[in-house]
Amino acid sequence: MAQPVPPPAEVPLAMPAGLGDPARAAVLAATPAFADTTTLAGRPAEAARQAARLEWLAATLVHLPEWRRASPLLGLFLIQGRDELRGALGIPSAAAPAAVAGALLDAAAALEAGEPARAAAALDAVGQGGSMLARLATLPPLPHAARATALAQSELTGDGRWDVD
């Protein structure tokens, strides 16, 4: 029997703006970040935002009508990438994507406000906040996340099936 399709996660309010489609914006922002996680070194707020984007993409992207034509591997790759990132950060696999994305975005906002204790407290909702902050500042290479976001970008821009104007 087929598993029921989970409802798409709501777009977190702090997702990238200005590019129109939030899915397109999230893909275009996340792809270079996960292709080379060293660009996030020492930038835990940005790493938290990128992690929230991957959470949202894994929970939502393939359920959006305009993405149903994408490779059948895309959903699987996004989930593998998300799970790899969760493992690197110490986030339990059973955590709800919306809760994880929300905690990550709250932590990013707190870090930008110069309030690391508030950032750690936000992350405590989905794991051990203090250790997650340290891990966000030093993400290891995440090959599954890189592959997933690269495939999403390829599906978005690679073969002309998408309106990218």
Rank of each mutant, 00 (worst) to 15 (best):
M1R: 15
A2K: 15
Q3A: 15
V5N: 09
A9T: 12
E10Q: 14
E10P: 06
E10H: 13
E10V: 15
V11Y: 13
V11C: 14
P12C: 08
P12I: 07
A14F: 11
A14C: 04
A14V: 07
M15V: 05
L19K: 10
L19W: 12
G20D: 04
D21V: 03
R24M: 06
A26K: 04
V27W: 05
V27I: 14
A30I: 04
A30F: 03
T37V: 12
T38N: 08
T39L: 14
A41M: 08
R43P: 00
P44C: 09
P44G: 07
P44V: 13
A45G: 11
E46M: 12
E46N: 09
A48E: 07
R49T: 09
E55W: 00
L57N: 03
A58Y: 00
A59I: 01
A59S: 11
A59P: 01
T60Y: 09
V62N: 02
H63F: 09
L64T: 11
P65M: 04
P65D: 13
R69W: 13
R69H: 14
R69S: 13
A70D: 13
L73R: 15
L73W: 15
G75L: 06
L76F: 14
F77S: 04
L78W: 02
I79T: 12
I79E: 04
I79C: 00
G81T: 10
G81C: 06
R86G: 04
R86E: 03
G87I: 08
A88Q: 12
L89Y: 08
L89C: 12
G90V: 08
I91L: 07
S93A: 15
S93N: 08
A95R: 15
A96F: 00
A96N: 10
A96M: 02
P97G: 08
A99C: 00
A99M: 08
A99G: 10
V100N: 00
A101I: 05
G102T: 14
A103Y: 02
L104W: 01
L105M: 15
D106L: 07
D106N: 14
A107I: 08
A108Y: 06
A108N: 11
A110R: 12
A110Y: 01
E112Y: 00
E112V: 02
A113N: 09
A113C: 06
G114P: 05
G114S: 15
R118P: 00
A119E: 08
A120L: 03
L123H: 05
L123P: 02
D124H: 10
D124Q: 10
D124P: 01
A125E: 01
A125Y: 00
A125M: 01
G127N: 05
G129D: 02
G130H: 11
M132I: 13
M132Q: 12
L133D: 04
L133S: 03
A134G: 14
R135Q: 12
L136K: 12
T138E: 06
L139Q: 13
L142A: 10
L142M: 10
H144A: 14
R147Q: 10
A148T: 01
A148W: 01
L151V: 04
L151D: 03
E155W: 08
E155K: 07
L156M: 10
L156P: 02
L156R: 15
T157L: 13
G158S: 09
D159K: 03
D159C: 01
G160V: 05
W162Q: 11
